[in-house]
Amino acid sequence: MEDALAAYGSGHADGMAGVTDADRARDPRTGPDYLVGVVDGRMAAFEAALVAAIRRAMGDRLDG
C-alpha cells in the first residue's frame, strides 16, 4: 500500500510538472498507480491554469 501511495504521489508531482517517467509507468507493481497520479496531476495543473486565466480576465473587465 505504501508503494502504491508513493507511486501515486510521484506521478501527481510529475503530472503537475508536465512530465512522465516511462520506466515508472511500466513498473508492473506500481505503474498503474503512478499513471493515475500523472493524470490527476495534469488535471490539477489544468485547473490551476484555468482559474488563473479566469481571474486575469475578470480583473481586466473590472479594471476597464
Rank of each mutant, 00 (worst) to 15 (best):
D3W: 03
D3Y: 05
D3T: 12
D3L: 11
D3N: 11
D3M: 11
D3F: 09
A4I: 09
A4G: 11
L5M: 14
L5C: 13
L5W: 09
L5K: 15
L5N: 15
A6K: 12
A6N: 11
A6C: 10
A6G: 10
A6E: 08
A7W: 00
A7T: 05
A7F: 04
Y8L: 14
Y8M: 11
Y8D: 10
G9C: 10
S10N: 14
S10R: 14
S10L: 14
S10V: 10
S10W: 05
S10M: 13
S10C: 12
G11W: 00
G11D: 04
G11Y: 01
G11Q: 02
H12C: 14
H12W: 13
A13H: 06
D14C: 09
D14R: 06
G15N: 04
G15E: 01
G15P: 05
M16L: 15
M16E: 13
M16H: 11
A17S: 11
A17D: 09
G18A: 06
G18Y: 01
G18F: 01
V19T: 15
V19G: 10
T20P: 07
T20E: 12
D21V: 08
D21Y: 03
D21G: 11
D21K: 05
D21M: 06
D21H: 07
A22Y: 07
A22R: 13
D23S: 15
D23Q: 14
D23L: 13
D23C: 09
D23R: 13
R24E: 10
R24D: 08
R24V: 10
R24P: 08
A25E: 07
A25C: 08
R26L: 13
R26P: 09
D27W: 00
D27I: 01
D27S: 06
D27T: 05
D27K: 02
P28H: 02
P28V: 03
P28W: 00
P28N: 03
P28F: 00
R29V: 12
R29C: 08
R29L: 11
T30K: 02
T30V: 10
T30G: 04
T30C: 06
G31D: 00
G31T: 00
G31P: 03
G31S: 03
P32Y: 00
P32K: 01
P32D: 02
P32C: 02
P32M: 04
D33F: 07
D33P: 05
D33C: 10
D33A: 10
Y34L: 04
Y34T: 04
Y34C: 07
L35G: 05
L35V: 07
L35W: 01
L35N: 05
L35E: 08
V36W: 03
V36R: 12
V36C: 08
V36H: 09
G37E: 00
G37F: 00
G37N: 01
V38F: 00
V38N: 02
V38Y: 00
V38D: 03
V38L: 02
V38R: 00
V39S: 13
V39E: 13
V39C: 10
V39W: 06
D40N: 13
D40T: 08
D40E: 11
D40V: 07
D40G: 08
G41R: 01
G41S: 05
G41Y: 00
G41A: 06
G41M: 01
G41D: 02
G41V: 03
G41P: 03
R42K: 13
R42G: 14
M43Q: 15
M43D: 14
M43S: 13
M43A: 15
A44F: 03
A45R: 06
F46N: 15
F46S: 15
F46D: 15
F46H: 15
E47L: 11
